[in-house]
């Protein structure tokens, strides 16, 4: 980590935003994304985005349930314990995805609907001292900033052969599509975002540093209570109408210095 005054300490800060896409506004569909910034313990933060499928009638319920289930696992497990090393983190994140999948199955039973009606992707990135872990099914992406500079695409978006295809947690073989990533490095920031931001946040599969760093700098400059609304306004005015009709989600975390 960078040298720091003894009078300040570094803590995680962050926020999450989901916006209804212009296409969904026109068709009267709700925002089908769910996003979450979570600080289950002081030294560990988690960023989650679930992108409900537009072709599923209840994709927004599916994405909310998946994030809620994953959050419950993380909050419960990380309260008194932090995984050490790759196998422990992979097991924890897989447990999150299993619980999220179970929540979709329960919803399908409650609504007497096929599970595909609750189709959603799910991507989670966890940052702790010296280690970053990510798990994903689908086409959301996770980028991590490393101490000393540089952005790494930790969780790459998974597309099918065609641009309107991806994997979903609701698919029968979801476990085969589960992907785990990790990085032994000190993370200073991270962003997880839906595919609708891919053309802005990634450039030829490489994190587009100006957008990511400006987003963090902008959010960090806002008072916490205004952060979400300010960034939402930015997205609405600048990005949303530009090239996407789809819902937009982004979760950002960064190290902030506060008085010791």
């Amino acid at each position: 980590m960078s040298a720091m005054s003894p009078h300040v300490r570094s803590v995680w800060d962050g926020f999450a935003v989901s916006l209804r896409g212009s296409g969904h506004e026109q068709s009267g569909q709700p925002c089908q994304d769910t996003s979450l910034y979570l600080l289950p313990r002081a030294d560990t933060c988690v960023l989650i985005v679930a992108d409900g499928a537009g072709s599923s009638s209840l994709g927004q319920i599916g994405s909310a349930a998946a994030v809620d289930a994953a959050q419950n696992v993380l909050a419960r497990r990380l309260l008194y314990w932090r995984p050490e090393g790759e196998p422990a983190w992979e097991a924890l994140l897989l447990e999150c995805f299993r619980e999220a999948r179970l929540s979709l199955e329960e919803l399908a039973g409650q609504h007497h609907s096929p599970i595909r009606e609750f189709s959603t992707t799910l991507t989670a990135v966890a940052l702790c001292p010296g280690f970053a872990a990510a798990a994903s099914i689908g086409d959301c992406a996770g980028v991590v900033g490393i101490d000393g500079g540089g952005l790494v695409l930790l969780a790459a978006p998974e597309h099918g052969e065609y641009a309107n295809e991806t994997r979903f947690l609701s698919q029968t073989r979801w476990e085969a599509y589960f992907r785990f990533y990790c990085l032994h490095a000190e993370a200073t920031m991270a962003a997880v975002f839906s595919d609708s931001l891919e053309h802005i946040a990634l450039c030829r599969s490489v994190p587009y540093e100006p957008f990511i760093s400006d987003t963090v700098a902008f959010a960090a400059s806002q008072p916490p209570e205004d952060r979400v609304s300010a960034y939402r306004t930015f997205l609405e005015k600048v990005i949303k109408g530009k090239r996407t009709e789809d819902d937009i989600s982004i979760v950002v975390a960064w190290r902030a210095e506060v008085d010791a």
Binding site: C203, Y208, P210, D214
Partner: peptide, 19 residues
């Protein structure tokens, strides 16, 4: 980073269209 210009965010650098 972006600035507030006449009440609107003059944010933020995004990839050029041709990028």
């Amino acid at each position: 980073m972006g600035d507030l210009v006449d009440g609107e965010f003059d944010i933020i650098r995004t990839p050029r269209e041709d990028e």
